[in-house]
Design a protein around this nucleic acid. Structure first.
Length: 660
DNA sequence: TCCTATGCCTTTCCC
DNA sequence: AGGCATAGGA
């Protein structure tokens, strides 16, 4: 293997000896390349590929890295175990589920399912029916989830995050206990359980730990700054036998605090492993210097001092552009024009991306792209597999895989007329509680929905023998569902064509459990379900989903207080810091061309129009030396403010002045 | 027990 | 704007 294309620091990390190792890698400093070479190097040194565990943040990242490893060492790379913490946990738990009181075909609950179950448990415990201002089920789940992921008690989480609900601690304790019992009874796990159970397996089950950790000769963790306490403990336990744990990350890019990620993991790694070697990668190979100057400027404004200064060997005369525009219409216009101009200049659509803080910030822009005939794929936001009709199909499949899955019963039963929430839950519960979990329609003779239950039981009977033939099972399920969709969704016509994408998704899978787990752990992006694939496509993505990726040209839209930074972060200094790091991540995705778009006038869904400020920009020292500001000529105010009040008219007038 | 109408309340990022 | 709880009639 050729190590000559690596710099000294990278080579040190790649060829490091055994033991723990921390790699601090600034944006664009060849972090991925280093990890890829490290894995390849280990294989060449004779480490069996199955002994290497590569934990990454997304499935996409894992796949990409293993492809690159394969280019260096060939087919041997296939043996490497790679994926997210959750997917690794899923695989390990299927093998050892019985030790934890679970069947190997347990079902994974996504966020929506988990909330629904919390809702059921809340009802069952009679919580919140009389009291006013009771937290919503999403909030309840959030409290439980934060407690698990950050290793804190419910009381602590309430204190820190939800002081207004501090008095509900006893309720939440009961809820937590019952919720856990319900999941166990039904053979379902939520995302957190995957991590909790894996940690429990590693801690409490001697034999399973031996099997798992003896196999893990080398553990490598990417994006370590975005791991939470639980994940860090898993990495430590997993590597405890051989002690070979290499973690790679950049504390300036920690952007998942909202999900319980803890920067302390990377900052305190040296305390956990005293004398652990540290390699710092500083040379940036990705971006031209003016882009890095801006990135450095952003870090300078951070209150947590990051001891980082990115430098590049790629000079450029082209400053990043700040498009100071009137509103979202002007934003769309300026972005479309820029995309086309760059393309004329040789930057293909594949090499361009539009990034935004929130998925909905690009709605108008997507319309404009379609109008202009620019093909794009959107990442982030609502997933294909989260659409109601797709979840319907998966509920049927889940019943085939795990007939104790009460949420799946609930969903499927509610399709029948005259069968409401109460009855659905009662039927689901009784099936789940039975020794031989099966639907017995005969018990409901005389009810209006009896015929539906007979049909459903018939379907499940026909489906049962097909578990091993995922393709045939999916076809049967879709056919069954298509007969019913007309009564379930008023707008069934536009939903119908999506159903035909499901068999395509299932194609790669030989096991139903695997298929269902995969869909839960890595929800299919709306973009990927579309069969119309142009060969040259622009990317539209949230910044979070763009983590770890890069493009020649990046167009970052919707800057402005309330949008980016998000309104929720404005009054909390810690959260504002996370917005800053997010801004930093966005900017450092760009190699050569960067445009920031700052619409001065954004109509919020409700409430006031957003003001013209943007703290992320305002606080950067010497901003105007770092950017080339353009103010496109104002387009005529064709839309006009509807029903504007006096305040709003005045604000608009001021803005208009500004632009003239 | 089910379904519909009404009014209130919140609103991000994701494995 | 849309989800969610509650009220009240069927």
């Amino acid at each position: 293997m050729d190590l000559s294309e690596l710099n000294d620091a990278q080579r040190r990390a790649v060829t490091a000896g055994d033991g723990p190792h921390l790699v601090v890698a600034g944006a664009g400093t060849g972090k991925t390349r280093t990890l890829v070479h490290r894995v390849a190097w280990l294989i060449e040194q004779g480490v069996p590929p199955e002994g290497i565990v590569l934990l990454t943040f997304t499935r996409r990242a894992a796949g990409e890295m293993l492809d690159r490893v394969a280019r260096l060492v060939g087919g041997r790379a296939r043996g490497v175990r790679g994926g997210t913490f959750h997917s690794f946990a899923n695989t390990a738990l299927r093998r050892h589920a019985d030790r934890l009181g679970y069947s190997p075909s347990f079902t994974i609950l996504d966020r929506g399912d988990a909330e629904a179950l919390v809702g059921m448990v809340r009802g069952e415990l009679g919580l919140g029916s009389t009291e006013q201002r009771y937290p919503k089920r999403g909030t309840l789940l959030d409290v439980l989830s934060r407690a698990t992921n950050t290793h804190r008690t419910i009381a602590q989480v309430l204190d820190d995050q939800y002081p207004q609900y501090a008095h509900l601690e006893p309720d939440l304790q009961r809820l937590a206990v019952r919720y856990a019992e319900r999941k166990q009874e039904q053979g379902v796990m939520d995302f957190d359980d995957l991590l909790v159970m894996l940690a429990r397996l590693l801690r409490d089950h001697e034999e399973a730990r031996r099997r798992l950790s003896h196999a893990a000769r080398h553990v490598l963790v990417d994006e370590y700054q975005d791991t939470n306490r639980l994940q860090a403990s898993i990495a430590a336990l997993l590597s405890s036998v051989h002690g070979n744990l290499m973690v790679v990350g950049d504390e300036a890019q920690s952007i998942y605090g909202f999900r319980g990620a803890d920067v302390r993991n990377i900052l305190d790694f040296g305390q956990l492993y005293p004398n652990c070697p540290v390699t710092v990668l500083e040379e940036n190979y990705r971006s031209v210097q003016p882009i890095l100057d801006l990135a450095n400027g952003i870090l300078e404004t951070a209150t947590t001092g990051y001891d980082k200064h990115l430098r590049s060997s790629l000079p450029s005369q082209e400053l990043p552009v700040l498009a100071d525009v009137m509103d979202e219409h002007a934003q769309a216009e300026v972005v479309v024009r820029r995309v086309l101009e760059l393309r004329e200049g040789g930057t293909s659509l594949d090499e361009q991306a539009i990034l935004a803080r929130a998925s909905h910030h690009t709605h108008l822009l997507e319309l404009a792209l379609s109008e202009a005939g620019i093909p794009f794929r959107k990442y982030g936001g609502l997933r294909f597999s989260e659409a109601a009709h797709i979840k319907d199909v998966f509920a049927l499949l889940r019943l085939v895989a795990n007939p104790r899955d009460v949420l799946a019963w609930f969903r499927v039963l509610s399709w029948s007329k005259g069968l409401g929430a109460k009855t659905a839950q009662r039927i689901g519960d009784s099936v789940a509680a039975a020794d031989d979990p099966q639907l017995h329609p005969a018990a409901y003779k005389g009810r209006g929905y009896h015929a539906d239950l007979v049909d459903l039981a018939g379907f499940l009977e026909d489906a049962a023998p097909l578990v091993a033939d995922v393709g045939a099972l999916v076809d049967l399920t879709i056919a069954y569902y298509k007969e019913r969709i007309v009564d379930i969704h008023e707008d069934w016509k536009k939903r119908l064509k999506d159903l035909d994408s499901v068999p395509l998704l299932a194609e790669r899978f030989t096991s139903l459990d695997q298929f269902l787990a995969e869909v839960a752990l890595d929800p299919v992006e709306a973009a990927d379900a579309d069969e119309a694939v142009d060969d040259e496509v622009l990317t539209v993505s949230t910044i979070h989903s763009a983590k770890g990726l890069e493009w020649d040209a990046v167009h970052l839209v919707q800057l402005g207080d309330g949008a980016f930074p998000s309104a929720f972060s404005l009054d909390d200094p810690d959260e504002l810091e996370e917005e800053r790091r997010l801004f930093y991540v966005a900017v450092t995705r760009a190699r050569r061309h960067l445009m920031l778009v700052w619409p001065r006038f954004v109509r919020a869904r409700r409430g006031p129009v957003m003001g013209p400020g943007c703290v992320l920009l305002d606080t950067i020292p010497h901003l105007h030396d770092l950017l080339e500001t353009v103010k496109p000529t104002r387009r005529p105010w064709s839309e006009g403010p509807q029903a504007a009040d006096a305040d709003e008219i005045e604000r608009i007038a001021r803005l208009l002045d500004y632009f003239d």
